[in-house]
Amino acid sequence: MPTFNRILLCYDGTREGQHALKDGACLAQELKAEVHVLSVLNNSAWVQGADIISAIPVDLVTNSARSLLDEGLKKLAARGIWARGHFAVGDPLEEISSFAHDLKVDLIVVGHRHESRLARWWGGRNDGLLLDRVSCSVLVTMGPETAEETPGAGETARSVEEL
């Protein structure tokens, strides 16, 4: 198994991002790796919904996104992990691959959201392209299945509370 000395955790505050942060933190602790956390404010929303979003002050959105990054860093610190935070505005695929290259990371950890092909196409997402843009390993965390994702399951969905 390759040694992962420098890990980039991608965190956006979503359930999937929380799983990526948690799983990446466990791995980083085990390997005693240097940890970087990246939060990307996706600017495609600004292009697609310019009329609606233009009514929202840019500073408010940026500050909110930066607070998500701070939240992730605090969760890691609570586990005794010191991590360096990075914030970017742009296309997440471009920003993740750019930061991975610049930081010379050995591993990128991202969360995965189960969606249909139609939903991915409609949303304009090409998640698979990340693998084509980086030269390091990528760990895609799935997180536990919820009752909503498993038809007929009798258990209720649990949210990720803390790391």
Rank of each mutant, 00 (worst) to 15 (best):
E94Q: 13
R120A: 10
W122C: 01
R125G: 09
G17Q: 01
G152T: 02
D102R: 15
I7G: 03
E95L: 06
A55T: 12
S54D: 07
N126W: 09
P57E: 14
I7E: 08
G152A: 04
H19D: 09
P2C: 05
L76H: 03
G111A: 06
A100P: 02
L103W: 13
G80H: 03
T156A: 14
Y11K: 06
A78I: 02
W82C: 01
S54Q: 08
A45L: 00
L93H: 09
E155C: 11
L73H: 02
R158S: 06
A157E: 11
G143E: 10
A20F: 02
Y11D: 01
V89F: 03
S137H: 06
R120K: 14
K32H: 04
L118W: 15
A83K: 07
W82L: 10
P151Q: 02
P151E: 07
L68F: 13
M1R: 12
L129I: 11
L107S: 10
V58P: 02
R79Q: 15
A20T: 02
L41P: 04
K32F: 05
T150V: 15
A33E: 01
P151T: 09
E34H: 14
H114A: 11
D59A: 07
E162H: 13
P151Y: 14
L93G: 03
D91T: 10
G85F: 03
S135F: 05
S116I: 01
Y11M: 03
V47G: 00
D102C: 11
A78L: 12
P144T: 04
G85M: 03
